[in-house]
Simulated assay, not measured.
Amino acid sequence: MTLYDSMMNWLQLWLVVEQRPQDEAARVSMEHVAEVLNQNFQVSIVEVAKEANHYAIKYTKDGSDHTERYNQQSAEALLSFINENPERYDFK
């Protein structure tokens, strides 16, 4: 998996965790992807910002600062699916 794809996976999970803080499965998965980013790509996420119609992820890699942008609709796809199918993801 590429760095770009791994960061998109992390972002999608991050958005779910932000909207559903009680979703432990999403939190564990997000933390796992963060570990993969760190171990496989030497990347640490610094900040996520929503800008117009995209999300910007600021991160460090090999001591340098970088920013990667992701389309808002693509980034929010997992969260949208969960919200459209609450019976499959309701943990109460």
Rank of each mutant, 00 (worst) to 15 (best):
38 N>A: 06
54 H>L: 02
15 L>W: 10
83 N>W: 07
65 D>S: 09
25 A>D: 09
65 D>I: 09
85 N>T: 15
52 A>G: 12
7 M>Q: 04
24 E>H: 12
91 F>A: 10
9 N>V: 09
47 E>P: 02
81 F>N: 00
92 K>Y: 13
36 V>P: 12
27 R>F: 08
78 L>Q: 07
25 A>I: 14
12 Q>T: 13
79 L>R: 01
71 N>D: 11
38 N>L: 14
18 E>C: 01
72 Q>W: 08
70 Y>K: 08
52 A>M: 10
16 V>N: 09
56 A>S: 08
4 Y>I: 09
50 K>R: 06
88 R>H: 13
38 N>S: 13
56 A>P: 00
27 R>K: 14
15 L>R: 05
31 E>G: 08
16 V>H: 05
87 E>K: 14
65 D>E: 06
69 R>C: 08
9 N>E: 05
41 F>G: 01
83 N>L: 06
36 V>S: 10
67 T>N: 02
51 E>R: 02
34 A>C: 10
28 V>K: 14
77 A>C: 03
90 D>H: 15
3 L>P: 01
55 Y>F: 07
76 E>P: 09
32 H>E: 11
34 A>P: 06
58 K>Q: 14
54 H>D: 12
8 M>S: 06
79 L>Q: 05
31 E>W: 06
91 F>Q: 15
9 N>H: 12
63 G>L: 00
38 N>W: 07
17 V>W: 03
84 E>P: 09
90 D>K: 14
36 V>F: 11
11 L>R: 04
78 L>C: 09
84 E>Y: 04
67 T>V: 13
54 H>T: 04
57 I>W: 03
26 A>Y: 04
54 H>R: 15
37 L>G: 00
2 T>M: 02
